[in-house]
Structure formats: C-alpha cells, structure tokens
Design a protein around this nucleic acid. Structure first.
Ligand SMILES: NC(=O)c1ccc[n+]([C@@H]2O[C@H](COP(=O)([O-])OP(=O)(O)OC[C@H]3O[C@@H](n4cnc5c(N)ncnc54)[C@H](O)[C@@H]3O)[C@@H](O)[C@H]2O)c1
Ligand SMILES: NC(=O)c1ccc[n+]([C@@H]2O[C@H](COP(=O)([O-])OP(=O)(O)OC[C@H]3O[C@@H](n4cnc5c(N)ncnc54)[C@H](O)[C@@H]3O)[C@@H](O)[C@H]2O)c1
Lengths: 233, 233
DNA sequence: CCTACTTTGTGCGTACTTTCACAAGGGCGT
DNA sequence: ACGCCCTTGTGAAAGTACGCACAAAGTAGG
C-alpha cells in the first residue's frame, strides 16, 4: 500500500491536466468496483485514451503516488484525485430553465452519485412552476436569490433560452454563485472571480462537420488500424 | 517537424481556431439579423469573448476578408466561415438512445436551423420503439445499419447508457458513419478515419468543483471590474 | 545480498497557442 | 490629389502542452 503523502503539493495544476483528471477518476472507479487493486500507467492510459507519459506527468502534479515496478494503488489514487478535484465534499447545484434540457439534467442520476446535489430548479413559466421534476418542485425564478442563499448553492446551471441566459447568470452571480455551467449559446459576462464553463452542442456538431468536409474534400482513403479516439474536449 | 508529418500537410486551420469559428459565426449571424453591415475585430472579439489579435489571426487562416480601416463585412464573413465549417451543405444526423437526453436533443430546434437534419432516432427498448418524438418515429436499434445507409447519415449521436455506447458506436462506424458525438461517459474506440467528440457534463461540473475548491482554499478572492468569462471548452 | 526486471517520474526537444506590437493598406475629408 | 487616421494582417516573443527516452527506484527471485 502506498504510504500517505504528507503534503498535497499543488497550486499550479495545468488546466489541461485538470480536464483529464475526471476521466482518470472514472476509469479508476470502474476498476475499483471490479476489485482491481493496482494499475500501471500504461494500462490506465489505454483505458483513458491517452499517452502513458502524459498520464504519469498528470499524476505527478498531485504528488508521487505510484510505486516503481508496480504501478498505482487504485483506491488510493481514486481518493487523491477526488480530493484534488474537490469531490470529497458535496457541491450544491441549482438549475435555471426547466425545459427539454433542464428536465434531462434534473432526471439524470449521474450527478447526485458524484457529489453534486441538485438543490433547486427554477423557471419563469408559470405553467412549469409548481411541477414536480425529479423529486423537486420547480420554483419561480424570482425566488432565486432566496433559495440560493438558504441552500448554499455554489454552482448554477443555465438551461434557459439564449435571450434569458445573461440575465439569469447575473442573478446567480449577484446571489453569490461563483461557478456557472452554461448550456445557452451565448458568451456570458461575469466578474473575474466567477468561473464559467460552456457546453454548446451546436458547436460540437459544427466542428464535426468541418472535419467531415475535410475528409470528403481531400481524398486519401485512410487505412486500417484500430486506435483510441482523440476525444478532444 | 518530426520526420513524418502526422497528416498529409494539414491544409491549414489550427484545431483551436476551428473550435472558435462557430462562436464567431453565431455572433455574426446575430449582427446580420440586426442589420449591422460591418464589424471591427475589436468589436467582434468583445462579443465573442476573445482577444482581438486572436480573432484576427483566426480569420486570417480563412483568407484576407477584412478591409483595413473599416473592418469585416458581416454577411461576407458569415458566408466564408459557414463555407469553411462545411455548413453550406446539410448534414444528416442520427441519435441513438431516446431517453432523457436523447429526447431533449431531438426536440431541440437549434440543430435543424443550422444545417443539421435529424434523420432517425434509435432505441433498444421496445417500450420506446414506435413512439413519436419530435415528429420522428423511434426505430429499433437493429435497423440502424439499414437506415444509416438509406438516409446517408454521416454524424451519429450516442445518448445511450455508458455500457451500450461502444457497441452502438461500432455499429455506427460499421454502417459508414465517420463522425460521432458521444454523451456517454466512456472513451470510445474508433478507427483513425472516424472523428469522435465527447460531451461530458459530469466532467464539466468536476472542473468547476476544482476551481471552486481553489477559491475556497486560497484567500481573499480577487475583486475587480466586469470582464468576459474565459469560457474554456 | 545481489542480479534481473518492471514501472515510475521527469528532463528535454518539438509543436502548438496566445499575445504583443507595429508596418502596411485603405477609406475619407479637404 | 494628399495626408490623416483607423484597422487589418502578421512577425516574433512568451507561454503551454505533448511525448520520447531514460535514470532512478522499487519488486522478485535466487
Ligand atoms: N435541448 C437541447 O438538446 C439543447 C441543445 C443545445 C443547446 N440547448 C440550449 O439549452 C437551452 C435550453 O434548451 P431547451 O431545449 O431546454 O429549451 P426549452 O425552451 O425547452 O426550455 C427553456 C426553459 O427555460 C425557461 N425560461 C425562459 N426564460 C427564463 C428565465 N428568465 N428564467 C428561468 N427560466 C426561463 C422556459 O420557461 C423553458 O421552460 C437553450 O439555450 C438551448 O439553446 C439545448
Ligand atoms: N440526462 C443527462 O442530463 C445526462 C447528463 C450527463 C450524461 N448523460 C449520459 O447520456 C446518456 C443518456 O442519458 P439519459 O439520461 O438519456 O439516459 P436514459 O436512461 O434516460 O436513456 C438511455 C436510453 O438509451 C436506450 N438504450 C439502452 N441501450 C441501448 C442500445 N444498445 N441501443 C440503443 N438504445 C439503447 C435506453 O432504452 C434508453 O431509452 C448516458 O450515458 C448518460 O450517462 C446524460
């Protein structure tokens, strides 16, 4: 068993590494469930779809948690990555906009099991307010400030139409939310202390279309070989 | 450069630029609708949330479409970016997995209006097959090969549970699909000629949690004006 | 205790990205 | 026709990210 590390030496994990840690974490959790005790960087890298040197360098930012000649202790690494990502504590989430997407998000079980508790759903439409969705009663958007305060919401999810997104974002920020996940196709304006991440499905499709066109244009029928997708996110 | 080039001399546009073109495009389309004829890199950059030098360099990859002293012609730029992204033609999309997320995607109007036609919905559950969703009848996943062939599907969207994702992906690929948008939290394995893009909401939340923890750990958060979010995707 | 073998952690060169800063191009008023 | 002023397009610098290759560190077996 790897000895515990005295100091989490961080302050300066590259953003690219942070974006990959959740991938490693998920792979490791899968292994832990299947009773695998240790894993080499080579094996974990293959599963995570990355180069093993990159994996080792990523993990080295958290500390030296591997054992040369053996690999990494799965449970220990799960713990270390979780701690680094801030998943050892629960985070409280609120979703604004309970339409197609908002409902899908609310009904998705994968969040709660990962330390993200959905505490409130908001909508502006009175036909929706009062509905029960995923065990929560949809509240009116005008109660946002009160609820965010009383529930201690720290992450706001925006699933409203684009036109309302900035307004809702401002209210989240005003109410003290410091992280926002935005599904509306607009660039949000926020103070420097607030983090925004955007998920834009149309953009993803357009990027695929670009490459698709490339493939169709310059003809050079690629060969065989079965490799890991690049999965650029 | 290394002895061998990874691709037959990349005909130009950096991946990072491709990922931003859709953002510019959306901003420009909004301007076009409001009757704006020309725009400077400074203004467009502000709206798109990027640095103006970056914007100019991005656009320079498409050609010299600006006029010094004036800016860019909005309509012309919309056309050029659309062409570059391959949006002057329609793309046919199929969605596999008509659950919470699959339904939200199918019901979303924003795709069709941007040149992405949803041609088919597939599910494995017989209670779902036959349902009408967004004007389409859900088909059984076993008809995937036939439909993909006859409809000329080039982009496959995977919204099934993680356990089924690789299998569905393999069938898409086998049927001739060369671009995949994956919502399931797994790393897909595909041949080199196939592009995969992944959207993983849990990862986004985990990245936010990481920064949230940082803010809490550290000390007094910065205080300043009102800037554009970095929007790293 | 020593040798053979495995796997980590990282130094280093390469490639990509972002940003700065400015010369050159082009419109417009006079 | 001329010169001023604005904005583009782009070299060059600075900052990130990637992946190879290998010494160091640890295991296993005799
Ligand atoms: N559905 C998708 O698959 C999908 C895909 C890509 C992007 N999006 C984006 O996600 C967002 C939501 O999409 P959707 O399909 O769920 O739309 P939707 O119209 O089904 O739902 C939007 C909901 O937001 C509510 N709303 C409107 N203004 C509000 C406000 N000020 N405060 C609170 N709630 C408000 C509406 O009442 C509605 O219930 C949109 O911005 C859309 O562009 C959705
Ligand atoms: N709903 C969300 O907000 C959300 C968020 C993040 C990630 N995801 C991921 O998206 C995927 C779908 O999520 P969901 O909430 O819609 O799940 P869901 O369970 O509601 O829907 C999944 C659907 O896929 C169908 N399916 C199962 N196996 C199939 C197969 N082999 N071929 C075709 N269809 C099959 C099921 O019958 C079901 O209808 C999951 O991988 C989930 O982890 C969803």
């Amino acid at each position: 068993m790897t000895p515990r590390s005295p100091r989490p030496r961080d302050r300066g994990i590259p953003e690219a590494t942070v974006a990959r840690l959740p991938v490693y974490l998920r792979a490791l959790q899968g292994m832990a469930e299947r009773g695998i005790l240790t894993v080499s960087s080579e094996d974990l890298a293959t599963i995570a779809g990355v180069n093993s040197a990159k994996l080792r360098k990523d993990l080295s930012h958290l500390g030296s948690y591997g054992t040369r000649g053996v690999g990494y202790d799965v449970d220990y690494l799960v713990y270390q990555i979780s701690r680094e990502l801030g998943l050892t504590q629960d985070w409280t989430v609120a979703i604004a906009g309970v339409g197609n997407l908002g409902r899908a998000l609310a009904n998705y079980g994968g969040f709660g099991t990962r330390g993200f508790r959905i505490a409130a759903l908001f909508d502006a439409d009175r036909r929706v307010v009062g509905d029960e969705v995923a065990g929560l009663v949809v509240r009116h958007i005008d109660t946002l400030e009160d609820v965010v305060g009383s529930e201690g919401v720290s992450i706001g999810v925006i699933a409203t139409p684009a036109a309302s997104a900035q307004g809702v974002c401002d209210r989240f920020v005003e109410a003290g939310v410091t992280s926002v996940l935005n599904f509306a196709p607009v660039v949000l304006n926020v103070p420097p202390a607030v983090d925004v991440r955007k998920v834009d499905l149309s953009i993803e499709l357009q990027i695929l279309a670009f490459h698709e066109q490339r493939k169709a244009d310059g003809q050079a029928p690629p060969e065989a070989g079965w490799i890991d997708a690049t999965e650029k996110t």
